[in-house]
Amino acid sequence: MTAPDINSPAEQERYERGLEVLATVDGGSAPAVMDSLADVAPALAHHIVAFGFGDIYARPGLDPKQRQLVTLGILTALGGCEPQLEVHLKTALNVGLTPTEIVESLTHAAGYCGFPRALNAVTVAKKVFAERDLLPIAT
């Protein structure tokens, strides 16, 4: 089985659609992530944009805020995804989630994935909030 040609017109169309979606929600980290893959895994970078954003994120049914809440919960539950969680925390703020909503979603996740993973997620959130001068958070 051969891998899809990421330079084919169909793949480029998916990639362009993904870039458009990504530009509307990105918290500023995506270009650096894609650039970091260019010399070692350009196909992975392509698929993150084409599949992740051009196919999945562009689907109807959930708005960007809802999609980010789902993503934050999944990354928190998985654990070990702190760099990706940081990117999506920035995106969550960018699409309009408040720090209070984000912390509440991470607190809620603790009941399903455990306190250690929720604490790790809150630590990453605190870093992102500090970078954006959003601390302290009123509850």
Rank of each mutant, 00 (worst) to 15 (best):
A130S: 06
I137A: 08
E11S: 10
L22R: 10
F53E: 12
I48F: 05
V122Y: 00
L37A: 09
I56H: 14
R59S: 09
P116I: 00
V103Q: 15
G52Q: 10
Y57H: 08
L69C: 06
N94A: 15
L75Y: 01
M34Q: 11
F53Q: 14
F53D: 10
S105D: 04
L37W: 09
I56R: 15
I6F: 05
I6Y: 03
V87C: 08
D63P: 01
T76E: 13
V25K: 07
G28D: 12
G54V: 00
I102R: 06
L69P: 01
F53W: 14
P99M: 00
L85D: 02
G79Y: 00
T24S: 15
Y15L: 13
T91A: 13
R59K: 14
R17M: 02
P4G: 07
Q12L: 11
G61W: 14
A23W: 02
L85R: 01
E82N: 08
A45D: 14
R14N: 04
H46P: 00
T139E: 13
E104S: 14
A121P: 01
G54S: 02
L134K: 00
V70L: 15
M1N: 12
G18A: 03
I48Q: 00
A121Q: 03
C113V: 09
I56V: 15
H88Y: 04
A50C: 05
R132W: 05
K126E: 12
P42H: 08
L119W: 13
V70I: 14
G61I: 06
V40G: 06
P4Q: 11
Y57G: 05
L75G: 07
K65H: 06
P42Q: 04
P64K: 06
L119P: 06
L89M: 10
L89Y: 13
P64E: 03
G18S: 04
L37F: 10
F115R: 07
A125L: 01
E131Y: 12
Q68N: 04
R117D: 09
P9R: 07
V128A: 10
L85E: 03
L37K: 08
V21F: 02
P99K: 00
D5G: 11
T107H: 05
E13A: 15
G111S: 03
L69I: 04
R132D: 07
Q68I: 00
H88A: 12
V70H: 11
L135E: 07
T107M: 14
M1C: 10
A125P: 03
K90M: 01
E104M: 10
L19K: 13
L72A: 02
P9K: 09
T139L: 12
G18R: 02
L22A: 12
H108P: 02
I6G: 03
E82A: 10
P42V: 03
P4A: 11
I48K: 00
